[in-house]
Nucleic acid binder design. Sequence first.
DNA 1: CGTTTGACTACGC
DNA 2: CGCGTAGCCAAAC
Length: 151
Amino acid sequence: MFELSDPEAFNRIVWEIVRQVPEGQVTTFGQIAGMIPAPEGIEPEVYQRLGPRWVGDAMNAVSWKDDKTVPWHRVINSKGTISLPPETQAAALQRARLRHEGIEFNSREQVDFDQWGWEGPEPDWCAEMGLTMPKSLRSRPAKGPQQLSFF
DNA sequence: CGTTTGACTACGC
DNA sequence: CGCGTAGCCAAAC
């Protein structure tokens, strides 16, 4: 699959997965990491926390000037929000692209996973790639605060 | 070569 | 609910 000593291989898998995310849907760093088996030597519970971070690194490695093949904007964090630093041009671009695809944000800048969460690629594609089907983002509350405060 | 920083998350308080 | 923290982290300083 990939060597722990070869981060580029990990990145390539991540990019390939992100390419499968259809327009108008979002996935999370954790959901993608969960599809990729833990590298040899990494305990599953450790990978559970490190994997998403590596996925973030893989996204960071995608130059947003050369993003024709990797729809990086469809990857957000488990809270349902954009992870790029707010008030940056990149974050604004990501938000604009998602809005353009029909995705909406609530007053806390969160996307509703029940409505726009990705259900993963076709099972046979996963098998072909040696990946596991991701956990559904739907039918479960997004992490972090959801309730809208009145003031 | 020691420190800092970071597109993350689960968990403990 | 919100904040802090650690993770055989890994590039960038």
